[in-house]
């Protein structure tokens, strides 16, 4: 039924997720919370040994982790409406993806805010301690260098760095 004991253990740790694909690998601690729907694809690798990994989906929200994604220690994904990671995305240590600002900047800070979905397309690489903010859409093959902060649409293949994020180079052709 299961490929290995490892996979069985991984599934036990992800029991709160709505759907877990085949050959999922979990190391260390993964904190799954919220009442939303969390979908983990095939061949996903979660390594929470150094710092736990956080997966959160609020009520009515959806968090999708595509096939073959690799999440390093301390990665935190928070969905209040929708966060979708495409296939083969890599998130380095302490990277953060969130689709809500939690508090209004210009109004009552305790009033509810509208989330903006975050999409990461195929093969996106998110560097260490990078932050992907509400409304970001990283197209296929985008690379965020470490400590990048991005909240907009980024064209396929671009490499970004810094806060606020700027392009480092453009892919030719």
């Amino acid at each position: 039924m299961f490929a290995s004991l490892d996979e069985l253990a991984a599934r036990a740790r992800l029991w709160r997720c709505a759907q877990v694909g085949a050959r999922v690998r979990v190391r260390g601690r993964v904190v799954v919370h919220g009442h939303g729907r969390i979908v983990v694809g095939d061949d996903v690798s979660l390594d929470g040994r150094e710092v736990p990994i956080e997966l959160f989906a609020g009520p009515g929200a959806e968090l999708v982790i595509g096939d073959g994604c690799v999440l390093a220690a301390g990665v935190s994904l928070e969905a209040h409406r929708k966060v979708a990671l495409g296939p083969r995305c890599t998130l380095d240590r302490l990277a953060k993806v969130m689709d809500s600002n939690f508090h209004a900047v210009n109004a009552d800070r305790l009033a509810p805010v509208t989330p903006a979905p975050v999409l990461l397309d195929e093969g996106v690489k998110v560097g260490e301690r990078s932050i992907v903010l509400p409304g970001a859409h990283l197209e296929a093959g985008v690379t965020l260098l470490p400590y990048t902060v991005v909240s907009r649409r980024v064209r396929a293949g671009a490499t970004l760095r810094g806060c606020p994020a700027r392009a480092v180079e453009k892919v030719k052709g």
Binding site: K96, V105, R129, Y147, T148, V149
Partner: peptide, 8 residues
Amino acid sequence: AVVSAGSV
């Protein structure tokens, strides 16, 4: 005052 995410 507000300090945005990831700022130094």
